[in-house]
Design a protein around this nucleic acid. Structure first.
Lengths: 89, 89
DNA sequence: AGATATTTGTTCGTATGTATC
DNA sequence: GGATACATACGAACAAATATC
């Protein structure tokens, strides 16, 4: 069985996972030195396919929260690169 | 903004995309060594969903113009396998 | 140098649901 | 009912970059 994770209906899983990760990032719970949870880790943590895990990561990358390095992982970027960190706002 | 592509009404998108690719194949603009545009590429080029891109590729595969390999892509087949290459015609 | 493991990148295959015409 | 078209989601295979041993 394994409850893995409770997803809300009518909201794409990758969006919900992205929201979780975004919250952890903005809360400073993820070190900029270490990579965020890898795709395999996200797959197991949330009980989803790689496709879904990758989409979640893509959301945060598009938003500017993280940067991804092939063969390494994704890393949290400087706060200035975050959506809420834009000076002109 | 990218105009993506101008589709004609009353003609299925996948049929129009297939026609484009067929023209490129018969014109020898696609090397048999390299795969034809991938599904993601077709999606972006024509601004359609994967479903539609796959249907276009399926048309050419059914016609004998290409052969598809999982994880690799679709490749142009020998002219003898094309509809116009049938000797009995 | 070489081999292995980990991780991301890319590609096709399949199924389901929704909406529209 | 059927065809078109989009989005979501899982599976599978291969490729490439990185790190470690």
């Amino acid at each position: 069985m394994s409850a893995t994770y409770s997803f809300r209906p009518d909201v794409p899983k990758h969006v919900q996972i992205a929201a979780e990760l975004r919250a952890q990032i903005t809360a400073g719970k993820l070190s900029p030195r270490l990579p965020i949870p890898s795709e395999p880790t996200l797959m197991q943590t949330y009980g989803v396919a790689r496709d879904t895990a990758r989409k979640a990561v893509a959301v945060l990358r598009d938003e500017g929260y993280i940067t991804t390095v092939k063969g390494m992982g994704s890393f949290v970027r400087d706060k200035r690169d975050w959506p809420s960190g834009r000076p002109g706002a």
